[in-house]
């Protein structure tokens, strides 16, 4: 069975491939987003415990909630960065004309 970590690594590689091959700035930013989603998936996957329940108490065996909460921060960074990058692309476009 393919698990979350492997999927994450595959997504990271797809993102890297996109940055290397795409010749459109917006597509490059999207590739970077795919890469970041890969990282998030990988991280969330590290917290997975087989057969465990959601981490709301009281339960006997729960998954590790820490990676998921950490990844919230990364997701917020992603949003901010994507906005900044798109704004920069607009300005580059404006400079070119």
């Amino acid at each position: 069975m393919i698990d979350a970590e492997i999927t994450g690594i595959i997504l990271i590689l797809i993102g890297l491939y996109g940055i290397i091959t795409k010749s459109n700035l917006i597509k490059q930013i999207l590739s970077l987003n795919i890469l970041s989603i890969g990282v998030v998936l990988f991280f969330v996957g590290t917290g997975y415990v087989k057969g465990a329940d959601i981490p709301i108490m009281p339960r006997a065996k729960v998954v590790d909630p820490l990676p998921a909460t950490l990844m919230l921060t990364t997701l917020v960074v992603d949003v901010a960065i994507t906005a900044l990058a798109l704004a920069l692309i607009l300005r580059i476009r404006g400079e070119e004309k």
Binding site: I12, L16, I19, L25, Q28, I29, L32, L35, S36, G38, V39, F42, F43, T46, P67, T74, I81, L84, A85, L88, I89, R91, I92, E95
Partner: peptide, 24 residues
């Protein structure tokens, strides 16, 4: 300058994501 900032952004983020992957 915007081009420079854009390049900086892409590569710096690439580095950050890989670093956080390593921490993972």
């Amino acid at each position: 300058a915007k081009t420079a900032a854009f390049k900086y952004l892409i590569f710096s983020l690439l580095a950050s994501y890989l670093f956080i992957f390593a921490i993972g």
